[in-house]
Amino acid sequence: MIFTYDHNGQTVTLTLDQQPDGSYHAVIGDRTYTVQAQPLNEGGWLLALGRQRFVVYSAVEGNTRFLSLEGQDYTLTVPDTRAARRQRSAGGGDLTAQMPGQVVDVLVNEGDTVERGQTLVILEAMKMEIRVAAPAAGRVKRLLARKGEVVERGQLLVEIE
């Protein structure tokens, strides 16, 4: 099977198939591996790639895959599928205020194109700053937050199309 993910804005692809003996055959670019894999109770895999052994912890939320290997974290996302889009639109509360607070800064203008993850608005509450980031690439259709304004929980700040 072919799997494709986004990692740091780059597309990564691999082919992974299970062999009749239970091992896996993995191809990444011009590298080929025979992989022995044991699932971990706490989530993740003990992998043997030839003589090298790796413990990779993993967790999933929606279309995001979180991985931890040797104390280093990696975040992969599954590119848009119908299910992932549905999941995201259902959880599209990112552009509303998550708590009452004051708008410290508005970093975009109406009509701007924005990238996924780009910070749009900064709120301050309880002496903490909270960034409101774009859940997907798009264009700022409407900007409802104004600098200095106090907003209520759930109030819409930015509309992205």
């Binding site: 990444i28 992989v35 895999w45 992998l47 090298q52 993993s58 991985l67 992969l76």
Partner: peptide, 18 residues
């Protein structure tokens, strides 16, 4: 710097999805 993605991490992600 963000380190490059190790093949083992990529394989683990795909194993879960497989």
């Amino acid at each position: 710097d963000t380190p490059p993605l190790p093949d083992a991490a990529l394989i683990a992600a795909a194993l879960g999805d497989l």
